[in-house]
Design a protein around this nucleic acid. Structure first.
Lengths: 132, 132
DNA sequence: CAAGTAGTTTAGAACGATTTTAAAGTAAAA
DNA sequence: TTTTACTTTAAAATCGTTCTAAACTACTTG
């Protein structure tokens, strides 16, 4: 399936700008990037795109599942007086957090830590959706 | 141990402002809050504090482990072309992310989901520190 | 195809969270 | 004390992101 079809299937108009972004992102290579990274890449491919369009486009792509946004990264820092090792439920609609005590969760199998690094803490976030 | 001692033990000068913050945060109650929440609370307790000081203070408290900052919340949104269910290593020094395939990790015991909510996805973040 | 309309792009302004600046103030050390 | 290093502050600056409103473009219907 080509990119034009992918966009149509996702319910998005295949505009010139979305095709440029699709050509960069939907080629099968898995990668992480920011809006600015992407704009730089667009620029250096000889095209150009307003930063507003980059954001619009990423939001659309995300909403229809063509890409993901990593780590529910809120724009506001949230602090916690609970310094014990613990995890969180996150109500994504409201941003509300609820503690999960360490005993209530257990990681069975862990991946191998990359060479030269140490495990410096694990954060588990269980995202919640209201039940209908 | 009183708050003045807690601050000294942590290597922080017990200034008037830090004591005000300590009185609010270090009373044993566990809670989540933002810098703005805290400033509001300071204001409504009859004190006042510059927002810059609130941030300075939270940064110091965090660095010496008196509080934590929740969910490695970066100020920049990171997107991912990998839309499969997967997790991440996070190099906190550089912000670099590395995928962890779903099979490489397994959650054994899960906490009970709060009433009225559904599990809408689990994100595991393993923070990495460079090995010496 | 032609004309209408609904969705899209854009530059630039606006925004909100956080950090920086530089000057004045305060705690600890000598 | 006097000195020195750290801290606080208001205000400006910065950074990522969203909004605005006007121009543009893709799709629909006639």
């Amino acid at each position: 399936m080509n990119n034009k079809e992918k966009l149509r299937n996702a319910g998005l108009r295949p505009t010139k700008q979305r095709m440029i972004v699709a050509d960069i992102l939907l080629n099968g290579f898995k990668r992480h990037f920011t809006a600015e990274n992407l704009q730089d890449e667009i620029n250096s491919s000889g095209n150009s795109m307003s930063i507003a369009t980059v954001y619009n486009c990423l939001k659309k792509f995300k909403n229809c599942g063509l890409i993901k946004q990593v780590e529910t990264s809120k724009d506001t820092a949230i602090f916690d007086t609970n310094t014990d090792y613990h995890h969180h439920f996150l109500n994504e609609e409201t941003g509300e957090l609820i503690d999960i005590e360490n005993e209530e969760i257990s990681l069975h199998k862990l991946p191998e830590i990359p060479q030269g690094y140490l495990n410096n803490g694990i954060e588990v976030i269980i995202k919640l959706k209201r039940h209908n």
